[in-house]
Design a binder for these strands. Structure first.
Lengths: 238, 238
DNA sequence: TATAATCATTGATTAAAATCAACTTTCTAT
DNA sequence: ATAGAAAGTTGATTTTAATCAATGATTATA
């Protein structure tokens, strides 16, 4: 992990971060002044579950997985962070809080790093930014609720189909290619299924004519048909 | 569902709600003026998944379950709300948002009902209240993350033990009685296990000498021993 | 380009919990 | 107090996905 000059991140770039989008130049300049730019090589950790959470992050390049380990060492990936996304910002308002997960680079990554206290001081002055953070936190809550819904009310096959469909813009109806941004076993853990099972599900969906798998690229033959299948898959499997 | 005069809820009572604890008398008076008091009989719905979310709530009396249904009609209880707790306040900051779950009374309930817009206007003026809401939302996020952890990395037995231990104050070491506040099948759904399985797990824990079950009361013989068992239960079961 | 290491697939088997079904207990309302 | 409904328990069986094991494919690297 090495610090780098932050000269290559502009104020305009910061403004594109949703949480900062309503801030003025002076506020953004202050954030820029206090932010750091870090590089993390594949496999290395940005922070670990339980560590004191004093900063949050924006991924510029690479991929980061947010995970937890069971006592027996089993790994559950909660989220795969892609470039442009912020993470760990929800802990900002828990004084003396600790990160609820571990963050590990899946590939060499470039990260912007913000001090919670600096941003909190700015949020105090900006109702808009404040309500944007709350909006974002609401969304997170909804996301996790959906996740629990999928884990408890849906099958592994459904979860995978859902994941695939989620990547596709609404207007696409026919053919579409989805590419896994990270190795299949990471996607599997993200979906709470074992790699073997993911492999079998992909195989079955292929056999049923829904998809063609080529490495990490999934070609969906007919998006609408898969959407329809997702609605019925649990009913059918009874 | 019938409206009632709110005369029996005082300003002081409102101040005990965490989210309102830093507000001044004038702000609390305004909230009181705009709040409503509703009664909901057992089995009836307060709101349904997908409905427009314009208010949030504080349960005064009774019990409310927050649930989702699968397409096949299977019910998953996400949360059992007990008196004194607020709920659905996280949706406040999602404009045009809808409730992510259904709220149904498990027993005859008495509920305070707050208009989102009124509270938002007050939050605008109060940084403290604002940061308290954010703190609360952070906690919710952590809670759901823990929930997913339990669902994916732990067994049904572990989830039940966890639930029991969670009800017990830290200082208790030996015997302790936990009483299920709602029927066992609701607890089962809350823990994402079937009633039959819950029954079997309780039976097994009894056979192993950890607990005695009498109706909805679980007598834990030795809290420390159960805590220790929880740590090892997954390892042992391998 | 060889070689190891990681990742992915496939098959056989197992395990945890769900399902189905019957029955008992408890609660509720008359 | 009693009938009926709802909730809970217990047993037999099935299902989904995990586990175990072996092999094949990719990727990285020496």
């Amino acid at each position: 992990m090495q610090n780098q000059p932050y000269s290559d991140t502009t104020i305009d770039e910061l403004r594109q971060i949703y949480l900062f989008s309503s801030l003025n130049d002076q506020q953004l300049a202050q954030i820029k002044e206090n932010m750091r730019h870090i590089q993390i090589d594949e496999g290395n950790f940005l922070f670990k579950h339980g560590e004191h959470a004093a900063r949050f992050f924006m991924l510029k390049k690479g991929h980061i997985k947010l995970l937890r380990l069971s006592r027996e060492g089993a790994e559950k990936v909660f989220e795969v962070v892609s470039p442009g996304e912020t993470f760990a910002e929800a802990a900002m308002f828990m004084p003396q809080s600790s990160y609820p997960m571990t963050a590990q680079a899946i590939s060499d990554s470039s990260i912007l790093c913000f001090e919670n206290q600096i941003v909190i001081d700015i949020l105090k002055e900006s109702w808009d930014a404040c309500s944007q953070l709350m909006f974002q936190m609401s969304q997170r809550i909804h996301m996790w609720i959906n996740e629990i819904d999928h884990l408890t009310l849906q099958s592994a096959t459904y979860r995978l189909i859902n994941y695939l469909l989620y990547q596709i813009p609404d207007n696409h109806k026919n053919v579409y290619k989805v590419k896994f941004p990270v190795p299949k076993h990471v996607i599997a853990s993200r979906l709470s299924i074992k790699p073997e099972t993911l492999s079998r599900i992909l195989h079955t969906l292929n056999k049923e004519g829904f998809i063609t798998v080529k490495g990490s690229t999934i070609r969906i033959h007919n998006v609408d048909r898969l959407r329809l299948h997702a609605v019925g898959v649990d009913v059918v499997s009874q």
